[in-house]
Design a protein around this nucleic acid. Sequence first.
DNA 1: AAGAACGTATTA
DNA 2: TAATACGTTCTT
Length: 294
Amino acid sequence: MSTAVDIAGPSSPDQPHSSAKIPNEPLRPSLKRSNHPYSLSHYISTPSPAVDVKGLIQPSPAQQRAAQPAHTKPRRAPSWPDMWESPSGLHLAHAAELLMRAGLLALTPASTEQAGLGAQSSQPVKREAVEAKGDAEGGGSGPEEDEEDSSGCGTEFQPFLGAWFPFSPALFPLAGFQMGGGHWRSAAMGAEGIEGLVAEGYSPGSLGGGSGGRRKRKRCGECVPCRRQTNCDQCSSCRNRKRGHQICKYRKCEELKRKPGGPGFESRVSGFDLRGSDFTLGLAQERSNGTLDG
DNA sequence: AAGAACGTATTA
DNA sequence: TAATACGTTCTT
């Protein structure tokens, strides 16, 4: 009896009726590639409205206008990515502020220290903001500056978040939950986490929200259905390809069949402890236990 | 709940 | 620009 999990399945590779464009490689090169051409510093230094961190603190009038509802009601309630991808980032910043007021969101030691300093004199914070602004605008920065930026991003990123980014890095997993579905990475990984996402097939645009649309997950390339190279041409998806826009049922990635976030998503979020790094530590533990992915 | 239909992101 | 296919909504 041949079942759906049989790689040969209803249509083995020698059968002629695989439809139009079946990749020989089950996995796209972009998925396999571990070294993404873009480093974190690229996204930091690349001007992008979605990465305009300065705008999170003091949104320009234009950004504030953009944040207004302005017109029609959304078809559905904003999801996490929607919030994350807000042109000004105001949703997330606002949420962070509310959490901070509620005492749920602790600043990193660096940030509290900076906050104290800022109470007396906002100079340090301002200076860093200005420097970061220069980076973000990337205006006139020579190649040597790029070099410096990329080499130092590992050490710059943490103060970058802790000092004047108005919320703890612990918020990043919140966004990451939805961003990556089963592939999200903890912010405890810092730059690695983000670059990991990129390396896993998330285009710069999808990460930064460039196009502002929803992001698509990609097939894992490793599950049995992904390994199939031929369409069955018999399932409803194959027969109804023109209208259905769906991949053959026997080739549908197991990972994509699950809801983004997967089982346990709710409990992980509800058990989220924003204070301190307990949460990120827990995530690391989960990861090492192998209970996180999959 | 499952499947169909559609919108649209992504890729070649 | 067309093809592919993921995500969402609608229908059964």
